[in-house]
Design a protein around this nucleic acid. Structure first.
Length: 577
DNA sequence: TAGTAGTGACTAACATTTGCCCACAAATG
C-alpha cells in the first residue's frame, strides 16, 4: 500500500465516523492523520521500516498499528467492521453541497438511501421533503447540487487556471465606487497547486454595491448565497467563488482569516486565546471585556499575537507557527533572486520561438543567462533533435550569443529523454560536448515503481547529467505522474550533486511543495525553471517560486540565484563527472 | 484518537454567516 491509499482509507474512516456521529475528536484524529501522511514527502513504507511511524505528527500507538496492518496485510479490519455499520458509499453523499453528516445519517436511517442515484430518486419522488427539518426548498437545492456535482464533479481547479480568473474578477470589482482594497485569499493566495474554490476580498464601506456588482459578473451560472457581508456564486465551469466585504479598518483580520489555512487559523486563534484574546475575521476581542482591537493590516494581526509576519505560502500548519515563535522562519526564495533559466525550448523542437527571441525575452524578464534545452530524438512528437541537428544547433547558439552582445549568455543544453528501457537518448561523448544536460521522463510513466525509479537512477548517476526536469512527470489536475521512490531519488541526487527541478509551469509544479521541503532538508540543489515553449511562458516563473516557497526553500538551495561563473563551476565539479 | 502525565483519566478544535425551517445543519477559512 502507498501513501495515497492510506490517506484515502483514513479520510473515508473519518467521514464514516462523522456520519455515525462519533465524538468529533475521534473523527479529527483520523483526518489529521490523513493530512499528515499526505504532507509527508516520503514513502510511508520507508518510515515504517525505520520504525518511526509515531514520529509523524498526529500518529500515535493506535493509528501506527492500523498503518502497520494496512502495510503488511493490505487491508484494515477496523474499516471492514465499520463498513458493516455505515455503508462506505454514504461518504459519496457528503460530496453533495448542502449535505453534511447529520443529514446523510438521517436520509440513510429513514429512507435507506446509500447512493447518489437513490438520493436523486427519493428527492424527485418528494420523499426527502417529508423528513423533519427538510422542506421543498432544501429538496430542490439538493437536486440542483447533485446535478452540478454530476456535471462538473467536485475536482479541484489548477492554480494556473484559477489565478487569471480571480484577477479578472477583482479588476471588475475594483471599479465599484467606494472600494479601497481588493485581494484574492484562500488556497489561491497560499498558491496551492490546485484550489477548491476562489476566495475574493473587498474593503469597502458600502458592501451592498459590491455584492450587487459581483452577482452580475461574467461567467456566473448561479448565485448560491447572498448576505450582507458574504456572497457565493458558481461559475459555468463549476468553480465556486466566495466574496466577502468588510470595512477597511478590519482588513487585516479579514484577509488573515480568509487566507487560512483552516488549521493555521485554528492555531492562531488558540494562540490568541492564551493571550486572553478571541480572534475572528472582524477583530481581536479581549476576554476581559476591553474594547476590540482592530487590525488594518495583516502584519498587525501577527504583531498582536507576538509573532513575526508569516507569508501565505507557509500557512499550512506544518510547523510555521513554531518556527515563527522560535524566530527561525526561513528567508524564502524570491522571484527577484532568480537570474537564470535552465530549461526552455525553441523552434528546433516543439518551441514556438527562435533561440534569439527566447534569449531576448529572458533578458527583458531579468535573466542574465539561459540554457536552450530542446528535446532529444526519441521524443518524436516534439520534433526531438538527432545528434546531427544537436551539433548544428550549436552554430545558431553561437550566432545568437553574438547578437545578444555582452552581459548575457546563452548556453547549449538538451532535455534528453530517459527512454522506457532506462537508457539515455544520447551517448556520453555527445553529452560531453554540451554545456548543460537535463534528463527527463515523458513516456512510460506508469511503469511499476521499481522499474521507473531505476530508469531515473540511471540518469542521475550518469556523470554528464546535471539536472532532472519535472521529476515525476505529473500533469495537473489529472495525471499523477510516475510512482517514483522519492527517498532513493533524493538520496542519489544528494550523493551526485544532481540538480532537481521545480518546474514552474502551473500544469506541472514538479517537484511539488512537500517534495521541495524534503529536498531542502536533505541539502539537494534545486532549480526553478519555466520550461518555456514561448516567450509568454517566462511570466509563469512566479508559480514555481511560490511552490518552492511552500517547500520552505531559501536562495541557498536554488541554483538560479547563482552567477554564470558560479553555476559553470558547480556543474564542472559535479562530484561524479 | 492523540498527547500528556503517569500506567487509567482527562483534555483537545476557533469562530463566523447563510439558508431554511421554525431550532439547526452546513459551509467557510
Amino acid at each position: 500500500m502507498n501513501n495515497r491509499e492510506i490517506v484515502n482509507t483514513f479520510n473515508r474512516v473519518a467521514d464514516m465516523l462523522s456520519i455515525r456521529g462519533d465524538q468529533i475528536h475521534r473523527v479529527l484524529a483520523y483526518s489529521k492523520a490523513a493530512e499528515s501522511i499526505a504532507a509527508l514527502g516520503r514513502d510511508i513504507n520507508q518510515v515504517y521500516a525505520e520504525g518511526k511511524l509515531t514520529e509523524i505528527p498526529g500518529i500515535g500507538k493506535t493509528l501506527a498499528a492500523k498503518i502497520e496492518e494496512m502495510l503488511t496485510t493490505g487491508k484494515l479490519e477496523f474499516y471492514d467492521r465499520l463498513s458493516a455499520e455505515i455503508p462506505p458509499s454514504l461518504v459519496d453523499l457528503l460530496r453533495v453541497e448542502g449535505l453534511g453528516p447529520k443529514r446523510v445519517k438521517q436520509i440513510y436511517d429513514v429512507l435507506g438511501v446509500t447512493t447518489l442515484d437513490e438520493l436523486t430518486a427519493v428527492a424527485q419522488a418528494g420523499e426527502l421533503s417529508k423528513l423533519p427539518r427538510m422542506g421543498k426548498k432544501t429538496e430542490a437545492r439538493l437536486l440542483a447540487a447533485i446535478d452540478a456535482l454530476q456535471r462538473h464533479g467536485d475536482g479541484r481547479t489548477p492554480l494556473g487556471d484559477a489565478w487569471p480568473t480571480a484577477q479578472a474578477m477583482l479588476a471588475e470589482l475594483e471599479k465599484v465606487p467606494g472600494v479601497t482594497k481588493t485581494a484574492v485569499a484562500g488556497s489561491l493566495r497560499r498558491m496551492k497547486e490546485t484550489i477548491g474554490d476562489i476566495d475574493l476580498l473587498v474593503a469597502a464601506e458600502d458592501a451592498a454595491a459590491v455584492m450587487a456588482r459581483f452577482a452580475e459578473l461574467e461567467n456566473i451560472e448561479a448565485v448560491t448565497a447572498q448576505g450582507p457581508t458574504k456572497s457565493r456564486v458558481v461559475l459555468f465551469n463549476g468553480t465556486g467563488v466566495d466574496l466577502r466585504v468588510l470595512p477597511p479598518e478590519r482588513w487585516g483580520t479579514l484577509i488573515s482569516y480568509f487566507t487560512g489555512s483552516k488549521d493555521h487559523n485554528v492555531a492562531l486563534r488558540e494562540l490568541a486565546l492564551k493571550k486572553g484574546l478571541s480572534l475572528n475575521e472582524h477583530a481581536f476581542t479581549p476576554l476581559n471585556g476591553d474594547p476590540e482591537i482592530l487590525c488594518a493590516s495583516e502584519e498587525d494581526v501577527y504583531t498582536t499575537l507576538g509573532l513575526p509576519y508569516i507569508v501565505p505560502q507557509l500557512r499550512e500548519d506544518r510547523g510555521e507557527i513554531a518556527a515563527a515563535i522560535a524566530g527561525i522562519l526561513p528567508e524564502l526564495i524570491q522571484s527577484s533572486d532568480i537570474i537564470s533559466d535552465l530549461h526552455m525550448h525553441s523552434t528546433w523542437s516543439d518551441g514556438k520561438m527562435s533561440i534569439l527571441e527566447m534569449a531576448q525575452a529572458a533578458r527583458s524578464h531579468g535573466r542574465q543567462f539561459v540554457v536552450i534545452t530542446d528535446h532529444s530524438a526519441s521524443l518524436g512528437i516534439a520534433n526531438g533533435l538527432s545528434v546531427e541537428r544537436l551539433r548544428k544547433q550549436a552554430d545558431e547558439i553561437a550566432a545568437a550569443n553574438l547578437a545578444m552582445g555582452s552581459g548575457f549568455a546563452i548556453l547549449h543544453g538538451t532535455e534528453m529523454e530517459i527512454k522506457a528501457d532506462g537508457t539515455l537518448d544520447f551517448p556520453d561523448d555527445v553529452l560531453a560536448e554540451l554545456d548543460f544536460v537535463i534528463a527527463s521522463l515523458h513516456t512510460s510513466l506508469s511503469q511499476p515503481r521499481e522499474q521507473v525509479t531505476d530508469r531515473m537512477l540511471n540518469a542521475i548517476w550518469n556523470p554528464h547529467v546535471d539536472m532532472i526536469a519535472h521529476p515525476t512527470g505529473r500533469l495537473l489536475p489529472d495525471r499523477s505522474g510516475a510512482d517514483l521512490d522519492m527517498d532513493i531519488i533524493f538520496e542519489s541526487a544528494a550523493a551526485t550533486g544532481t540538480i532537481l527541478e521545480v518546474n514552474a509551469n502551473p500544469q506541472r509544479l514538479d517537484l511539488r511543495d512537500i517534495h521541495v521541503r524534503r529536498a531542502v532538508e536533505l541539502g539537494i540543489k534545486l532549480a526553478i525553471n519555466t520550461d518555456a515553449h514561448h516567450v509568454d511562458h517566462f511570466d509563469l516563473l512566479h508559480y514555481g517560486v511560490a511552490t518552492a516557497q511552500r517547500g520552505w526553500a531559501t536562495a541557498v538551495s536554488v541554483v538560479n540565484t547563482w552567477s554564470l561563473e558560479k553555476f559553470l563551476a558547480y556543474i564542472q565539479r559535479k562530484p561524479n563527472k
